[in-house]
Computed example of a mutant assay.
Amino acid sequence: MGLNSLVGSTAIVAALVSVGAEASATEIDTAIVFAVDVSGSVDPATAELQREGHAAAISSQAVLSAIARTHAGCIAITYVEWSSYGQMRSVLPWTNVCGPEDAQAVASAISEGGDRGFGCEAMCQTSISFAIDMSVTLLGSYAGKASNKIIDISANGINNDGLPVEESRLRAIAAGCTINAIALPEIRLGVRNDLTSYFADNVIGGPNAFVMPLTSPSLYTSALRQKLVKEISLAEPTGAVGSVALLAMPETR
């Protein structure tokens, strides 16, 4: 399916830590794991939406302005793709983004290296629990110090493989992480299912946690941009653990 199949927790941890050490050791406001769903339900159009949406959002002026307003003037990000339990691939190791040149380099790496939606050779399930657990590992491997640790889940389905997602959410919260999510519209047998409530009830958690709903795939990039601005602007978490805030839909302009 195009992902590195990592069987066994020791191998998974070692592999993820090995790809997570390129960012320089520094104190920043926010470290973000972009954890992107590339399971069997992600077709080429959805893969492009996620890949190019993240590339466009991180290099947008709105996000760059939010980064510039932080105490350190930098954030750290890593971009990984996941599907079933044990299947995760690093597209971008930990990288500090401190201005337009950094952001453009990150955007290019995501755009060039991200999933194309053709790599699923077998039945690729959706293990959000695995994505959360491995994101906690990645945040633990970050060489610097981040006051705000964010796991950004982008997915178009519910957790149907691996451990119960509620258990992984609790472990992430206990580790001081916030899990946010963006819910891609899911279509099964021609019927669209709204994943927003599922993500709000079962996936997100931690200080200032929220889920970004989508009524149309065309809003994905603008929604992701708004999501990142909010996350970066909340560098000093004040919300209650496990709090939920649903953002209003972004304007299309």
Rank of each mutant, 00 (worst) to 15 (best):
S147H: 08
T137L: 04
S233T: 13
P100I: 08
G205P: 09
S154P: 02
N193F: 15
E186T: 00
M249Y: 08
A55G: 15
R169S: 01
V33E: 00
E27G: 08
A105Q: 14
W94G: 10
A200L: 14
M249N: 10
S84M: 03
V80K: 01
S135G: 12
E52Y: 13
A47D: 04
S216Q: 14
I158R: 15
I75G: 03
G206I: 11
A131V: 04
Y142H: 01
D115N: 14
V165E: 06
E236V: 11
T221I: 02
F199C: 10
I173Q: 01
A68L: 10
L138R: 07
A62L: 08
Y220V: 05
E231G: 02
L3K: 08
N156A: 13
V203Q: 02
A181F: 10
I182D: 03
P213Q: 01
S168D: 03
L64K: 06
A174T: 07
A175V: 02
L228Q: 08
G205I: 07
P93S: 01
A200W: 05
Q61A: 15
S83C: 07
Q226Y: 09
L138P: 01
N208Y: 10
L184N: 00
Y220T: 00
N160V: 09
A76C: 00
T46H: 03
D115W: 14
S83H: 06
S222D: 14
T137S: 13
L219D: 15
V36I: 15
A223W: 03
A31S: 13
A68Y: 05
L228D: 13
D152Q: 04
V80R: 03
S18M: 08
V17Q: 15
C120I: 12
A57K: 04
A21M: 12
A146S: 12
F210A: 06
R253L: 13
P100N: 11
M88Y: 06
M1N: 03
A47G: 13
A143K: 09
E186P: 00
M212K: 05
C124I: 02
I67R: 14
I153G: 05
S129P: 11
S129Q: 11
V165G: 01
N96I: 08
S243Q: 14
N4V: 08
S24L: 01
E121N: 14
E251A: 05
P93Q: 04
Y198M: 03
S65L: 07
L139V: 06
V7S: 06
S147P: 00
S60D: 10
L163S: 12
N148M: 02
G114I: 10
